[in-house]
């Protein structure tokens, strides 16, 4: 499972990077979102998958899945949400003010 996940995470990263390198703001935001998912899955995979029960005391079994990556990912999900929201609104605002969402047109002037 870990090997499978590593490959899938790699593909998610590749797709996310490709989107980030494109010229449209919306695609870039979608790209960061996909990379965010990739990172979360990667962290979990690195902690080892399905090595025991859910990390809740008093349930069946005595072994738990590593709780630390889960705590990290939980934080990451929320932060990811915050940045995506900010990013979205920023691009909305950029479009309203500047009238374009094409990065090539948004670039600065020469020698600026």
């Amino acid at each position: 499972m870990e090997t499978c996940m590593s490959i899938v995470v790699g593909i998610l990263f590749a797709i996310g990077t490709y989107l980030i390198l494109s010229k449209t703001l919306l695609r870039i935001i979608l790209g960061t979102s996909i990379i965010g998912h990739g990172v979360n899955l990667l962290i979990l995979t690195m902690g080892g998958l399905k090595k025991g029960g859910p990390p809740i005391l008093g349930l069946q079994g005595i072994t738990f899945t590593d709780p630390l990556p889960q705590a990290l990912v939980l934080t990451a999900i929320v932060i990811n949400f915050a940045t995506t929201a900010l990013f979205l609104v920023l691009s909305y605002r950029t479009y309203r003010v500047l009238g374009t969402d094409d990065l090539e047109q948004l670039r600065g002037y020469e020698n600026e």
């Binding site: 870990e2 090997t3 996940m5 590593s6 490959i7 995470v9 790699g10 593909i11 998610l12 990263f13 590749a14 797709i15 996310g16 990077t17 490709y18 390198l21 990739g38 990667l42 995979t45 690195m46 902690g47 080892g48 738990f64 590593d66 709780p67 630390l68």
Partner: peptide, 27 residues
Amino acid sequence: VISAGVGLLVTLFALSANGNRLFESVS
């Protein structure tokens, strides 16, 4: 090319890290 490189690098890192656990989890 760049994105394929990034993807490949992440996969390689993940696989190599997965196969070589140097120490026990602190958990």
